[in-house]
């Protein structure tokens, strides 16, 4: 699966459009991580646990989007966008969306 956030796949021609595909995950922080994050809030700096958590969750969202595109028979997703929203205290939704196409 080819993924880009531009409106084409360079050097290839778009043969068929399959419309919007998307994937999302909702993740909550876990208690132990949150405790250490609270300590880290005192000294400031990067919260590595959260960076990893969100990175992994975003990867999951992209995989779900790619699975959906594969079901249509697409081999590329173009114009991908990401968005993050906090839906509840301590939980975030990571959303990825794009246009599934067949290129060749």
């Amino acid at each position: 699966m080819l993924l880009t956030n531009i409106d084409c796949v360079p050097g290839k021609e778009i043969k068929q459009h399959f419309g919007l595909v998307s994937g999302s995950t909702v993740r909550a922080k876990h208690f132990v991580g949150d405790f250490f994050a609270g300590l880290k809030n005192v000294v400031g700096g990067e919260l590595k646990g959260y960076t990893e958590l969100l990175e992994e969750a975003r990867g999951e969202a992209v995989n779900r989007m790619a699975d959906q595109a594969a079901q249509f028979g697409a081999n590329a997703i173009i114009n991908i966008r990401f968005s993050t929203s906090s839906v509840a205290a301590g939980a975030a939704e990571l959303y990825a969306y794009g246009t599934a196409v067949l290129v060749g």
Partner: peptide, 24 residues
């Protein structure tokens, strides 16, 4: 110029960062 392109792929980078208690 499009012929010159060999590969195009999505890349991302992210960071979670917080202020310290003094700045807060």
């Amino acid at each position: 110029s499009i012929q010159q392109i060999e590969r195009a792929e999505l890349v991302d980078g992210s960071v979670v960062i917080s202020v310290d208690y003094f700045k807060h």
